[in-house]
């Protein structure tokens, strides 16, 4: 027994001595094995599509294959939980949505701590959320909509689901304009769009990429977008901010890593992602889907997530957007 104990102590000491050396070695050598990105949705769709496009340019820059692992479920919580509980060795990253910033306030029983267990690494893209009505609607301009919304609950708006950026854009607008609308959440933006173009849903709030084709075909009319700048796809459509309502929000995809990952690795990964996002192939797809990327460095993306978390938390508190 004594031998075993001594051996154990020796082993522990050796391990303790080895740890700093190993981590210093790790950052210089990183990446020495494939890097995994956990995608929080099933294959297909924008998030998965862009992540898979990023695979090739990113692995070229890292010199190691990039593996995509789809882990759908619970609006991203399942995937984010997997990242939070992964070893902080720089080989596991995950994509989070806008709901990541709202979850701490919205979901009291999150299996991880958004701020303590995870660290934002790189910004991928942000969508343009648009407000549109069917072509047959009597509402012609955004002012018409504001007038209709004066009667509490009279305007019914559909989104892809509770807790998405489109939903928050409506909540932010209601707060700014002092009006109250009725939310009809759908299981995904596509089904909401189907009802809207059929004239069954009076107001549709989804990404421009989803409604764009119908706007061009003349079956839907986009009244405004919720983005900070005008949409590149629809440069004639005013933003809500221009119209006097300080609502600036989009559905974003940001890469996060387990907390405690070596900052030097995070720096390297951030730089590689930014370069890969700027590659022609990725930019073409971003433009085709009216998605905007932000060239944020590590500090900027961390500040961005911190600010969004605070803003979303306040919005959820003020409007009591909680599962009842």
């Amino acid at each position: 027994m004594a031998v075993t104990k001594r051996a154990l102590i020796a082993l522990a000491l050796a391990a303790a001595a080895a740890v700093p050396a190993a981590s210093a070695f790790a950052q210089e050598d990183w990446p020495s094995q494939p890097v995994k990105i956990i995608v929080p949705v099933a294959p297909g769709g924008t998030t998965d599509g862009i992540a898979r496009l990023l695979q090739e340019p990113l692995s070229q820059r890292l010199g190691q294959p990039v593996v995509i692992e789809n882990k759908p479920g619970s609006a991203g919580v399942v995937a984010t939980d997997a990242v939070a509980k992964a070893p902080a060795d720089g080989y596991t990253f995950g994509i989070v949505f806008t709901s990541h910033a709202a979850n701490p306030a919205m979901m009291p029983s999150l299996p991880y701590d958004t701020e303590k267990d995870l660290v934002p690494v790189a910004f991928m893209w942000r969508s343009v959320v648009s407000w549109s009505v069917p072509a047959s609607s009597p509402i012609q301009t955004f002012d018409d909509l504001v007038a209709a919304a004066q009667e509490p609950g009279a305007v019914i708006y559909g989104t892809g689901g509770v807790g998405q950026a489109s939903h928050f854009s409506a909540e932010l607008f209601e707060q700014a304009a002092g009006v109250e609308m009725t939310h009809a959440p759908y299981r995904g933006a596509a089904l909401a769009t189907a009802d809207a173009i059929a004239g069954q849903l009076p107001l549709l709030i989804v990404n421009t990429s989803t409604v764009g084709e119908h706007a061009r075909a003349g079956t839907m009319r986009i009244l405004a977008t919720a983005s900070p700048e005008r949409s590149k796809m629809f440069p004639d459509v005013p933003t809500l901010t221009e119209l006097g309502y300080p609502v600036s929000i989009g559905e974003f995809n940001v890469l996060v890593a387990p907390a405690g990952t070596d900052p030097a690795i995070l720096q390297k990964f951030n730089a590689a992602v930014r370069e890969a996002m700027a590659s022609d192939k990725v930019m073409d797809q971003l433009n085709a889907r009216d998605l905007v990327t932000q060239d944020y460095d590590l500090e900027e993306v961390q500040q961005f997530i911190a600010e969004e978390t605070e803003r979303m938390g306040k919005l959820v508190e003020d409007n009591d957007i909680r599962p009842q």
Binding site: A42, P43, G44, G45, T46, D48, G49, R52, L53, G188, A190, E213, H214, R216, A217, T219, D284, Q285, A288, R289
Partner: peptide, 18 residues
């Protein structure tokens, strides 16, 4: 169908009225 749609978008085809 959502998967097929995703595949079309990746190949640069935007299904829709046009």
């Amino acid at each position: 169908m959502a998967l097929m749609l995703g595949a079309m978008m990746i190949h640069g085809i935007q299904p829709g009225p046009a």
